[in-house]
Nucleic acid binder design. Structure first.
Lengths: 179, 179, 179, 179
DNA sequence: AATGAATGAGGCTTCATTCAT
DNA sequence: GATGAATGAAGCCTCATTCAT
């Protein structure tokens, strides 16, 4: 799965040949089919593994009783820790358009995570801390900004110093907060 | 090219077959090779066409002498107008990872546009209007947020009413501005 | 299709590789897929072509108003002429068990031909010329005997001289007729 | 071997995978290779087992001193008993074209059985009871008719009641006997 | 003896590209 | 210019066979 991840990140699902993955993993192509019924099953397994991992981390770290500003900081840092610990997984999950081969179960994981984010936004809006607009919009603006930042980092266009990280986190809070 | 665009959006470069494009365009596969030397030449031509179109629009609309807040609004609205006028082109250019098949010339267009954005950020920073951090970071946060919003719209998770548009624009300004 | 026929006769459907057929036909494997959607489509097309050809011949030659003994002789000779004119086609259609890959349409042709044979037997039974037992049994005994004879001929265990042919025809009539 | 027989009947030699046979037998694929050197060795062992079984039965039941009409009846009934007791074995041996993978020893069993049949026909011809034509032809007509009948039964197109059986036996005798 | 993971050659099929018309 | 049949390399996947356990 590690080899498959690297290949999919580099060349995408359709651009990656099963023998390429096998070569990278130093196994025979046929062996892959002992563990995954098809190339699609493999990509779905990969996607689920890493999306679930984010979800698990987010849920584990989330401070239920902390104020929204603190919740935001924790989640933001958790996402960042994840993206830095598993850059290829992050790139795979976020920088590719998977719509043509992911199955319903894989998409469901994504949806659940988004629902969690929206619920968090709604609670903070009820406290008057966030802008009173579509909660989906606010969540997508922040996720989008985060992804943009990480992609720029991945492409070596910005370096993630503590100052940059802290400024980015504050900037994203400013995106959604009332003033 | 219209047919190719649709196919590439739906299934990506490697997932799209030349005969598929030909079928969608109701021409013969061979005909495509009168106009493009190869599949790669076609995807590069497409990418250049639509990235140049953004660049052209941005440069044409950019109010050199207006204050930064106004410049920001104009560019943001111009990008939005573009994304709504050519949603498939926008999705193609922004939601796919093209790194494995774009050539140097195509990448240069992208880089020029980003340089323009960075220069604009730097000028506004000099006026003390924007946060004094990495200008690349600020630009990527805004572009990322914009992309996140448009993708959510494309996936029908938010509707772009005038209120949403206006709130999103203000939120993105808040991302980068000092307070 | 001629090449495919030879290959299928020699090694059966599953024992024949598409590249083998292509090599025998002196074309590229891919070319086969311009004319047939799959290997199964090819074998079905072949089966239909040759089963229809028998059906066509039988219907064309059948003497509606002649007495049953004469009808029998005509059909028997027509089948023989067919089997000698197209020995590979006959072997393909009769000596292989096609049940795992023929589709409904192909099977229908076979069924229609058998129904025709049964109807003929029933009419002759009503005249008291044939044994008063299951008409399907009588038809299968004659078809089976015919196939046995042709297979022995195909395997060069008997030679089909005019005397042999005539004796075989009479023997098959004796199989079904009352005495 | 029972599992292999079922698989070979259903999909033929080339259409059957060793893992399929193993799955049906509820053993591991590797285990098959403790008992048979290869897939070909397995199919040859199966063919020999069941062809020998027919031969054994025929020789055991054959009434050396009875008149030909009685000998015929005994053999016909013995074949029928065999075909009904082991329908899959019968279908495997008779409805598939084995020429591409049977070895010399397997083919020899078949030839010996046929020689026995021919010798019996010749003796009856010398008594003037059978038609004075190629004995191979007569034997093949009867075997062919028998196979046709059994295949129709296998495909549930005729039911083998005592009346049908008796009529079929008499019809086959009529095929070969003088009148 | 039995297992079943691993192998890699080979099978079916697709598809970028060519070229005669 | 346009066509689409033809090509054959390459992709996904299967499967006969091996071998360490």
């Amino acid at each position: 799965m590690e080899a498959a991840l690297q290949c999919f990140v580099d060349r995408g699902f359709h651009g990656t040949a099963i023998p390429e993955i096998a070569a990278r993993a130093k196994i025979a192509s046929g062996t892959i089919y002992h563990y995954f019924a098809s190339k699609e099953a493999l990509v779905n397994a990969l996607y689920r593994k890493w999306k679930s991992e984010v979800a698990r981390r987010v849920l584990a770290a989330f401070p239920q009783t902390a104020p929204p500003r603190e919740q935001f900081r924790v989640l933001w840092n958790e996402m960042l820790a994840y993206a830095k610990a598993h850059p290829a997984a992050f790139a795979f999950v976020e920088y590719h358009n998977h719509s043509s081969y992911l199955d319903a179960e894989s998409l469901a994981i994504d949806r659940n995570l988004k629902d969690f984010g929206v619920a968090m936004v709604v609670r903070a809006q009820q406290e008057g801390l966030l802008k009173p607009v579509s909660p989906v919009l606010l969540m997508e603006l922040v996720f989008g900004a985060f992804n943009g930042m990480m992609r720029a980092h991945w492409e070596r266009r910005i370096e993630m110093t503590p100052e940059v990280i802290s400024a980015a986190e504050q900037a994203c809070w400013d995106t959604v907060s009332t003033h």
